[in-house]
Measured scan of single mutants.
Amino acid sequence: MFKRLMMVALLVIAPLSAATAADQTNPYKLMDEAAQKTFDRLKNEQPQIRANPDYLRTIVDQELLPYVQVKYAGALVLGQYYKSATPAQREAYFAAFREYLKQAYGQALAMYHGQTYQIAPEQPLGDKTIVPIRVTIIDPNGRPPVRLDFQWRKNSQTGNWQAYDMIAEGVSMITTKQNEWGTLLRTKGIDGLTAQLKSISQQKITLEEKK
C-alpha cells in the first residue's frame, strides 16, 4: 500500500525546468507551479508516452532531478554507511541512485490517469530550513484521497528550496528505503546496493492501464 502511495505522490513532485522555475526561495510556489507544469506535460505528451513509456525517463531527467536534492536524499538512505564509504564508492552510488530515480519516478508518472491535487495554504517560513507541505491527491475514479507531506529543505548556501522526502501515513519514503535496503547494505555494503540500483534502473517502464 505504501509503495502505491509513494508512486501516486511522485506525480506531483516533478519540479519546473530552470527556464520557467518559480521563486526558488518559496517552496509553496515551487510546489504549486511544479504540480501544474507536471500535470500539463503528462496530459499533453501522452502520444509520446504511450508510444514509448521510457520517454518518461527524459521527462524526469529534464523536469524533476535538477530540483530534487538527489545527493542529500541518497546520503540519508545510506545512513551510517555513508561515512564509511570511499569517495569513489559515493560517486558510483550517487550515479546509480540518480539512474534509479529516473526509472522509479518514471514508473510513478506512468500512473497518471487524470488525477488532480490540492496544496495546503502557504504558511510563514520564518527562519525554518525544513518545511512540510501537505498535498491532497484526488483520484477521478473514486479512490479515497491521498494526503501527503512533502519535505522541502532550504539550501544554506543559495537560499533555494528543494524537495527531498515524502511522508505518507506517518511513514517517510527515506525511512522506507532504509528499511528495504538495510539488509543488503549490511551483507554486501554500498557496492552491493550500487549494483542492485544499476540493475533496477535497467527495467523498462510500463504503463498502468486505467481501472
Rank of each mutant, 00 (worst) to 15 (best):
I167R: 07
V131S: 12
Q24Y: 09
V135E: 03
G74I: 00
A51N: 13
G106Y: 02
V146R: 01
L11S: 01
E209A: 14
W181A: 15
E91D: 13
A120K: 14
L78K: 00
T183D: 11
P47K: 06
A85I: 04
D61Y: 04
L101Q: 15
V146Q: 04
Y55P: 03
T25H: 11
L197W: 09
V8M: 13
Q123G: 09
V171D: 01
D165Y: 01
P15G: 12
E209I: 12
L76W: 05
D127Q: 05
Q48M: 15
L197M: 11
L16R: 01
Q203S: 09
Y164A: 02
P145G: 07
R41K: 09
P87Y: 04
Y82C: 03
D139E: 15
D139F: 15
L125I: 11
R147K: 06
L11T: 02
A9H: 01
A19H: 05
K177R: 11
G192V: 06
Q115L: 02
R98F: 08
A104L: 10
K128P: 04
G126Q: 04
V131W: 07
K29F: 13
V70K: 04
T176S: 06
Q103A: 11
I190N: 06
I137N: 11
T20S: 08
R153C: 03
L193F: 06
A18K: 13
Q151D: 08
V70F: 05
R143H: 08
T58A: 09
L76P: 01
F94C: 07
T158S: 10
S201P: 14
P124K: 14
Y105S: 01
K204A: 13
L78T: 06
V70T: 12
M31N: 05
E99I: 14
Y82D: 01
Q103M: 15
A75K: 01
H113C: 06
I138D: 06
A34N: 05
V60L: 03
L65P: 01
I138N: 09
L10C: 08
I130K: 02
W161Q: 01
R134E: 02
K210I: 06
D139S: 14
Q89V: 07
N179V: 07
P15Y: 13
S199H: 15
E122R: 10
A14W: 13
V131K: 10
G74H: 01
P145L: 07
P121G: 11
L197I: 15
A163H: 14
A19Q: 02
N141H: 10
D165A: 02
E33V: 13
R90A: 03
F150P: 01
A96D: 12
N155D: 02
G106D: 02
A92V: 14
G159L: 13
Q203M: 06
E180Y: 02
I49D: 05
E99F: 14
K211D: 06
I137S: 12
A85N: 08
Y28K: 07
R57K: 13
G142M: 10
K128L: 07
M173F: 06
L11A: 03
T136L: 13
K128S: 08
T86H: 09
Q48T: 11
V8G: 05
P27V: 10
K43S: 14
F150T: 07
Y67T: 12
Y81P: 03
Y72G: 00
Q115H: 06
